[in-house]
Amino acid sequence: MKGTLLDFSIQYNEGIINGEDNKRYSFIGAEWKEQVAPVRGQQVDFLVNELGQAVGVYLATLGTPFQQPPVFQEGNAQLQEEQNYGFFDWAMKCLKNYTNFSGRARRKEYWYFYLFQILLGFILGLILAIIGLSESQVNIFTGLLNLFFFLPALAVGVRRLHDVDRSGWWMLIAFTIIGLIPLFIWMVSETKPERNQWGNPAK
Rank of each mutant, 00 (worst) to 15 (best):
L95D: 02
G63T: 15
F184P: 02
G19H: 00
F101N: 04
R166L: 14
L126V: 07
E31M: 12
D163Y: 04
K23I: 01
E135H: 11
R195P: 01
G143A: 08
P182S: 14
W198T: 01
L154K: 01
G41R: 08
A202H: 03
V164C: 02
R195D: 03
E50S: 06
G75T: 08
G157V: 15
E34K: 08
Q137H: 06
R104Q: 09
E81L: 09
F175C: 10
I178T: 04
F66K: 00
M1R: 01
R40K: 12
L79K: 12
G15A: 05
R40W: 13
E74S: 11
R106F: 15
I118G: 00
R107G: 13
Q67G: 00
Y58K: 15
L180K: 00
N146Q: 10
I178C: 08
V39S: 10
L119E: 10
G15T: 03
R166Q: 13
E135D: 14
A30T: 11
Q83R: 10
L95R: 09
G157M: 10
F148N: 01
F150D: 00
L133N: 05
F101E: 05
F101S: 00
G75M: 05
S136V: 09
G143L: 03
L133Q: 01
E20K: 02
W111E: 09
H162T: 06
Q11I: 11
L47Q: 14
G199R: 12
N146G: 15
I181W: 06
Y114G: 06
R40F: 07
N200V: 04
R104N: 12
G157S: 08
G179F: 11
G132Q: 11
L6S: 02
V57R: 05
L59R: 12
W90K: 06
H162Q: 05
V158C: 05
T176Y: 12
Q137D: 06
I16D: 05
A54L: 09
A202Y: 02
P69T: 14
L115V: 15
M187A: 14
I177G: 07
A54P: 00
V44N: 06
R195S: 05
I185E: 13
F27A: 00
Q35I: 07
S167K: 03
R160F: 09
G75S: 11
V156H: 02
W186P: 07
L126D: 15
I118N: 00
W111M: 10
Y12A: 08
Y112R: 04
F27Q: 06
Q80W: 15
P193M: 08
P38R: 10
G52I: 04
I123F: 14
L95I: 01
G143T: 03
N18H: 03
Y112P: 00
F88Y: 15
L124G: 04
Q68C: 07
A54F: 07
G29C: 11
E74K: 12
L119Q: 03
L119W: 09
G15E: 14
Q137L: 15
N146R: 01
I177S: 14
E14I: 02
G125C: 07
Y114I: 14
W111F: 13
G168A: 11
G75A: 09
T191C: 01
G132W: 15
K2N: 09
I181N: 02
R40C: 04
A30E: 04
P65K: 10
